[in-house]
């Protein structure tokens, strides 16, 4: 539980030499989900993790979220361990499905996180990586993401894309230090997905919250990110890290630009080598 670690920086999320093995020790069904993974995310960066299914990208995200613990290695979130980070509400989690409470209105869903664990704010101020932010106005946030006229509706009255936008607003609403998104758009159709990506970008450019975004869509990773982490499977490891040097704010015109396609091809190439080397490395 020590907050002073050799590799713990108050302005970075650091995963060092993380190992995670599923299945009992010694059994043949053991799966090495993460093998000696190192990852550093700077404050304010948008980082995507991409890779084939089973490469441990979700596991990596869940380690940072404190939902699982590494078998060995270290995880620190802006100088705190994941457990403290959660207790201080530094982490906003957006799962694959919207996970809204069906009996609460849109506003109710977005404000609920601020009503639980009320001691978090006091704890947050004592942590070394603390950066003060004023509490977000949930209505303004929802208006920004295009849900201004759906505030009092129930989740079942919304489309899938709208529901996922509510889930994103919910994560932004606690003014978390980092948003962890686990393939949040994977269940949406392509049109909805592209629209919601741009909305996320717009919101992110205003808030500049650190984001770790798991995806299996190459174009999604390139459009959104400052940095793309390519992972490969069996055992789950980091294959390459690609910095995306495209200007922001990124808008519709950029999506068709040649520079973007170059990055996409580069990452597809890395993914193919990762795919080819996967079973051999086992």
């Amino acid at each position: 539980m020590s907050t002073t670690r050799a590799n713990a920086s108050p302005d970075q999320i650091v995963v060092s030499d993380a190992l995670k093995i599923y299945g009992g020790s010694g059994s043949s069904a053991q799966v090495t989900a993460l093998s000696h993974v190192d990852l550093t995310v700077d404050r304010g960066q948008f980082v995507s993790i991409i890779g084939p299914s089973g490469c441990g990208k979700s596991t990596l995200l869940r380690l940072i979220a404190g939902l699982e613990t590494a078998d060995s290695g270290d995880v620190s979130v802006f100088g705190a361990d994941p457990d403290q980070a959660c207790a201080a509400k530094m982490i906003g989690f957006v799962p694959q499905v919207p996970a809204l409470l069906p009996w609460l209105s849109v506003v109710g869903n977005v404000t609920l996180p601020s009503k639980v664990n009320r001691r978090a704010d006091a704890l947050r101020r004592t942590l070394p990586g603390h950066v003060h932010r004023d509490p977000a106005d949930p209505r303004a946030l929802l208006a920004k993401i295009g849900l201004g006229d759906a505030l009092d509706r129930l989740p079942h009255q919304l489309s899938g894309g709208m529901q996922q936008r509510v889930a994103i607003a919910r994560a932004f609403a606690i003014q978390a230090d980092v948003l962890l998104m686990d393939e949040p758009f994977s269940a949406l159709d392509e049109f909805t997905r592209e629209a919601i990506q741009l909305q996320l970008l717009e919101l992110w450019e205003q808030m500049r919250t650190t984001v770790v975004f798991v995806t299996h869509s190459v174009s999604e990773a390139v459009v959104l990110s400052d940095r793309v982490v390519v992972m490969s499977a069996r055992p789950g490891r980091i294959e390459a890290v690609v910095d995306i040097d495209l200007p922001r704010p990124r808008r519709q015109g950029l999506l068709e630009s040649a520079a973007m396609h170059e990055y996409e091809d580069l990452i597809r190439g890395k993914l193919q080598t990762a795919w080819a080397s996967g079973p051999v490395a086992r």
Binding site: A65, K89, I91, A99, P113, N117
Partner: peptide, 23 residues
């Protein structure tokens, strides 16, 4: 309660009482 909802509230460290009454 669906597991993703529980995960969201686990990362917020909602207390057991809060999970019981709110979820």
């Amino acid at each position: 309660v669906s597991p993703p909802i529980l995960q969201v509230f686990a990362t917020l460290r909602a207390s057991r009482l809060e999970v019981l009454t709110r979820l």
